[in-house]
Amino acid sequence: MEQRLEGILNNYLQNEGNVISILQDIENEFGYLPEDAISWISDRLDVPPARFYGIATFYSQFHLKPRGKHCITACTGTACHVKGSEWLISSLTSELHLLPDEDTTEDRKFTVEKVNCLGACSIAPVVVIDKEVYGKMSSDRLMKLVKKLEKKESEKEKA
């Protein structure tokens, strides 16, 4: 980890970055913001950790907990909302047995995320599964896709 952080630090020093850009780099590198990484950077830059956490909790892009292996992002923008994204999300959370304020399954296989608008509103409702954009999503199609992923995962486990 230290080596990877060293690289991020160098990049910061060379490109006159700021606290946000360091955190963006850490998030890209690890998929979330590990506590150790923040302590390390905070020591090296002599900036209090509170400053990092202040930023990390303000912007929705940062995560303090590890994310699931598969990321399902449902758009909750206005266009997607009126086309039923709320219903899609309740079927997702129910299928994956997520509690109301949870976003990642216990086995860290799935993360369900909401986003305000992906800018693809003409094909609403939009769901992104592992970076692939699906437009005009319906709850039955979504359930089929998720169940397929779950099956793949459980088969992998058996093998």
Partner: peptide, 24 residues
């Protein structure tokens, strides 16, 4: 400069704070 996912950063003074590396 990449935004980090906060609607209020579209407001001009918040946007400036964000570019400066602060909470927007």
């Amino acid at each position: 400069k990449l935004g980090a996912g906060a609607f209020v950063c579209g407001e001009e003074t918040a946007l400036i704070a964000s570019i400066e590396g602060n909470r927007g």
